[in-house]
């Protein structure tokens, strides 16, 4: 089932960082990975899909209705964007940040209920932060902060999860925790769109890959079909080596030397 669909959508920041004529769908239980070189417009695309940046042409439909016709809070109940980082002005405890994820469901006045608290606890447990509930975010490492932001999004229990480089600061163990958490949401019927630099993360999670270059989609399809040595040469300008893994899947060795 298609939850979010973009058709020839053009949009982004005024003056700079735009994406052009993008078509894609985010479907329940499926993961779309967006890849491309630095500055290709991947993060901009996620913000356009979340309705935070405007479109100037084309359409974006959320549950069949134009995205701009939804109220901001209604969108936030269905769609959650996980930015790469959040700057904290005050030393909030982890639990309080994660609980912010419930805000779209509460509105301005309704106090959180037991089910809201339970969602917050589940989200912290899912990213391995249950034991840091009362620690100030000022005392966390970059990777831990990234997990706090992810937990906040999971606590929102959205139908569509938009992840911007969710593993950029995570160690190997927590990359695995992330993958497990995302797979769990996919099996619950959540639609996931993930911007990934790590092509192996795209390989591991995605049902479909969208390749962006200079704001435009240059390829779209199953990861196995799209991610080829030729594409990496044309889009990223590198010669990468593909290796077969024990379970028959493929992995990409980054060309560092």
């Amino acid at each position: 089932m298609t939850l979010l669909a973009a058709r020839d959508a053009t949009g982004g920041y005024r003056g700079a960082f735009t994406v052009r004529e993008i078509s894609l769908t985010a479907d329940a239980g499926r993961c779309l990975a967006v890849i491309g070189p630095n500055g290709a417009g991947k993060s901009t695309l996620l913000r356009v899909l979340a309705g935070i940046l405007p479109i100037s042409a084309g359409t974006i439909l959320l549950a069949g209705r134009p995205l701009h016709s939804w109220r901001r809070r209604e969108v936030a109940r269905l769609v959650t964007l996980v930015p790469q980082s959040v700057s904290f002005a005050f030393p909030l405890p982890v639990q309080e940040v994660v609980a912010q994820g419930r805000a779209p469901h509460l509105g301005p006045w309704r106090p959180p209920t037991a089910s809201d608290h339970a969602a917050v606890q589940r989200a912290m447990a899912a990213v391995g932060l249950a034991d840091k509930a009362n620690v100030s975010v000022f005392h966390l490492s970059g990777g831990e902060r990234q997990r706090v932001i992810l937990a906040r999004a999971l606590a929102a229990e959205p139908r569509i999860l938009l992840l911007d480089e969710p593993a950029s600061a995570l160690d190997l163990l927590h990359q695995k925790t992330l993958a497990t958490a995302v797979r769990k949401r996919l099996s619950d019927g959540v639609a996931v769109v993930v911007v990934a630099h790590d092509l192996n993360l795209a390989f591991a999670l995605a049902d479909e890959v969208l390749v962006l270059q200079q704001g435009r989609a240059v390829a779209r399809g199953e990861p196995g079909a799209v991610l080829s040595p030729q594409l990496l040469r044309e889009v990223f300008g590198v010669e990468a080596e593909f290796i077969a893994r024990g379970d028959g899947s493929r992995a990409i060795l980054p060309p560092l030397c």
């Binding site: 209604e74 959650t80 959040v86 909030l92 779209p104 301005p108």
Partner: peptide
């Protein structure tokens, strides 16, 4: 007071607040 909760979200940045439903 009416925007108390929104202000709490805005303390983590405007974009972050917008993703959580703040106009």
């Amino acid at each position: 007071f009416h925007h108390g909760r929104d202000l709490g979200l805005l303390a983590t940045g405007e974009e972050s607040a917008a993703t959580l439903g703040v106009e």
